[in-house]
């Protein structure tokens, strides 16, 4: 039994070794040859950008021709050594902040970003007002009401 386990482990080690030797260090995607870390970086960038044809898909996921071209541009710039921010800025410069799937915090998007806080504040305000009114209790009875109450109770 012990020998079997040892043999299995050795076999697994060999298989992994062969697999590691076989793993390519570069791949070709969207017409660009790049290393695995470069491809990973390109995917991170593409996941942050909107495909402008299928507008709720990322550039990485979309099948649209324009998205494919975007992926090519991103990869060529990654290979050239540009930073993620430089590549994203290149896209924003041409297509505006709409190309970003996560909108940046700028005056134009303040309402968008702060609306949850505003809604919470409004809700708390309503709650506070309602509670204050309840604490006041009902107004005292007028003399007429007093008489009527007496009449009903007797």
């Amino acid at each position: 039994m012990k020998r079997l386990v040892v043999m299995a482990l050795v076999g697994l080690g060999l298989a992994l070794g062969i697999a590691a030797a076989d793993t390519p260090t570069t791949i070709r995607r969207d017409g660009v040859v790049l290393t695995i870390p470069q491809e990973k970086r390109a995917e991170v960038i593409g996941d942050r950008l909107r495909c402008l044809v299928c507008q709720n898909e990322t550039v990485e996921n979309s099948q649209a021709g324009l998205a494919k071209q975007f992926r090519g541009i991103i990869r060529r710039r990654v290979v050239k050594g540009e930073t993620n921010q430089q590549i994203i800025d290149f896209m924003v410069h041409r297509y505006g902040i709409f190309v970003l799937l996560k909108p940046p915090l700028i005056p134009l998007t303040w309402l968008l970003w702060f609306s949850p806080a505003i809604a919470l504040a409004l809700g708390l305000l309503v709650l506070l007002l309602a509670r204050r009114r309840r604490q006041q209790g009902p107004p005292p009875l007028s003399p007429d009401e007093h008489d009527r109450l007496k009449e009903l109770l007797s």
Binding site: L52, G65, Q69, I73, R94, Y95
Partner: peptide, 12 residues
């Protein structure tokens, strides 16, 4: 190739 179009911000 459509590269100039992208440089102009054209998307279709």
């Amino acid at each position: 190739e459509g590269r100039v179009a992208i440089n102009w911000g054209v998307y279709g």
